[in-house]
Design a protein around this nucleic acid. Sequence first.
DNA 1: AAAAGCCCCTGGATGC
DNA 2: TGCATCCAGGGGCTTT
Length: 271
Amino acid sequence: MPELPEVEVTRLSFADRIAGGRIESVRLGKPLRWPLGLRADQLVGRTVLAVRRRGKYLLLDLDEGLLLLHLGMSGSLRFADRQPPAGAHDHFDLVTSRGVLRLNDPRRFGAVVYAPGERSQEALKLLGRLGVEPLTEDFDLEAFHRGLKRRNAPIKQVLLAGELVVGVGNIYASEALFLAGIRPTLRASRISRRRAEQLRAAVRQVLARAVAQGGSTLRDFSNAQGEAGHFQLEAMVYDRAGQPCRVCASAVKSIRQGQRATYYCPNCQKS
DNA sequence: AAAAGCCCCTGGATGC
DNA sequence: TGCATCCAGGGGCTTT
C-alpha cells in the first residue's frame, strides 16, 4: 500500500495532534515483521515530541529514543481520541494523553521498532542504506545520474530498490517512468544525463502531486483520520492494463519485473 | 558489488 | 456454494 505519498499524508494527518502526548500504555497484537525491541511498558511515561518521515518509515521522536514505524504492504494508522476494542488486524496501539495511535495491518509486513537513538545500531539497520529524499535538495541530479550509470538492472527495479532515491514504490515507479517517457525495462546505466534529469523531475512531480491528492487508495489505505486518497483516479498507467493511454490512446501494457507488475505505454515510452 | 529469487502474511477476485 | 489459484502500495535476506 504505502509509498512515500501515503506515508507522508499519514504523517501530516496526525503529527501535530500527537506531539506532546505522554505515553500512557501500549497494546501489542499479533507479531509484526520485527519485535518491538524493548518491553512495551518501558515506553510508558515517555513523551512523543514529533513525527518525522524517512523514506517509507515514520519516526516518532520520544523524549528518550524513538519509534520507527513501517506500514509494509497493508498497514495504515489511525489517530483517535479514544481506544475502541481492537479488531483482528489491529496490532499496535500507542495510547497517549493526546489520543490513541493504532496500526492496522492485515498482512503484518509492517513494523514498529524501538531505537535508543537515530544513530543506534537498531535505527541504522533499518535506515542506514536508504537513498536520498526525493522531495528535498538532497536529490541531486549529478549524483542520481552517476548512480544510474553504475547499475545495469532495469530502471524500474533501480527505482524500487530505494538505494539511490527513496519512497518510490510500485505505483509511482510506473507513473514516474511514464511521465519521463522512459521504458521500465531500460537498463539504468543507459540513461542519458538529459533523461536522468527528466526522470528526476518526474519522480518529484508525481510524488508531490500524490501527496497533494491524499495518496492513492487502491483498496484500504486511509490517513490517520480515516480519509481516503484520490491519486489513483489520475494514474496514467498503473493498474490500467489494456486500457487506452490517456495521452496517445495506445493500449497500456503490463509486464512483470522482479515478481511485481509494471505498467507502461508502448508508444509513449519507446525506450 | 550488484542482481535475481524467495519469503514473510491475509484477504479479495477470479475460475472451475 | 465450495475450493484452488493468483495477485496485492514492501523489502530484508540468501544465493548467484
